[in-house]
Design a protein around this nucleic acid. Sequence first.
RNA 1: GCGGGUGUAGCUCAGUUGGUUAGAGCGCCAGAUUGUGAUUCUGGAAGUCGCGGGUUCAAUCCCCGUCACUCGCCCCA
Length: 417
Amino acid sequence: MSRLQPVRGTHDILGDKSIRFRTIFEIFKSVAQRYSHQEIDTPIFEFTETFKRTLGDTSDVVTKEMYTFEDRGGEQITLRPEYTAGIARAFMSNGLQQSTPCKFYSFGPIFRYERPQKGRMRQFHQIDVEIIGVPEAQADIEVLSLAADLLNELGISRYIKLELNSLGDPESRVLYRNALVAYFSDFKAKLSEDSLKRLEKNPMRILDSKDETDRGLIENAPRIGDYYNDFTKKFFADVIAGVEDLGIDYHINDRLVRGLDYYCHTAFEFTTDQLGSQGAVIAGGRYDGLMEMMGGPKTAGIGWAGGMERMAELISEDLLIKANRPVVVTPVGAAGQSIAMKIAHDLRVAGIVVDMAYSGNVGKRMKRANKQNASFVVLIGEDEITRAVATVKNLDQGSQQEVPLANLANYILGTKV
RNA sequence: GCGGGUGUAGCUCAGUUGGUUAGAGCGCCAGAUUGUGAUUCUGGAAGUCGCGGGUUCAAUCCCCGUCACUCGCCCCA
């Protein structure tokens, strides 16, 4: 048993979970396409440098959560711990600066070495949306609107609230950062160990701290809103006005931050209290400084990522996209056996989901068909073959009737709806 | 990385204050019913009691370690 278990924090996706994932992805794809986003698939691993440079040396993701290894060619490789860096890299690798704006969507596995918990795995799956090359607030609004529509169509809006903040433009940020450092420096003796480190490298992250003493200090810390310059104020007001016009509920949380320097303006999280301590279902923000930091031209960007496992826990049963019920072809005797596969094939070509009852007596095969939730059983034995018919039994009604083989597909398709 | 809880059949769980052969329900297989499903009845298979070590005449039970799950911290999707 111990050898057969999956690696810690990884899960096989099958059965109900698989259906949930497919449902979420189908709905996501449909919504994203209505917003005119194009699919993009970037590799699951990148050079370690791609993530190190963009996520910064102080973030938890880089310092202790990446799956990094040296490949046989001696390259430092990392399994992607997030989407944005890879998509930004792809944007530049493919020379897409020539064709902005670019609107992308993507989905797939993400890897982080963390202690597993409900709603937190080492391999998990995200859906992702990015708009690259649009510095205007319309992009922020559209991306938020896409997220809100998605949650709506998934039927889980009522569990989720949107927290919104602005980190300001670079000028506002510097002012605020300095004010924070000045404030917290007076309390160095009281700050938690983590927050002391943050004070050096990443003072805005202190606002994230859950440490009780820290929280007391944070109460009276400077508020970012007081440091916005006119441009930032206008930009944030535009975003809020747009969100309100679309009827999206939100509330401002001025302690919601992103520590890294390339983030600016809009930052947001769609959070829930339904998943224990894993609150965020969708999170994102604007990253106008990212491309430059990666060595490309200055390019605006905004996007978000959503956790599929977390959404999968929230969506309700009746939303799930079910596969069509099968028709089960049941041969009787050697004669039936020889013609059954051909009959099944004809039905499949006609677009019908068909399974075969492989073995056992007729009763046994009926029983299995019933268990498979089949809609019809097509019985074919010597009696039928001599008359070129099949006995078709409707499992819901219990009725049955003989149908000429030539009409079989039409009969089933016609009766179904 | 830190702290708490849990680990017995495919699933959900009982149980033994340490003592012949470890149980139930559901599921699975077979028969009643060898050309007709859902109900019913009868029978059956299935377990190194997570794994390793220790204590003991004897361990599924007590102790230690380990792995996994789970809850909280941390972090976030």
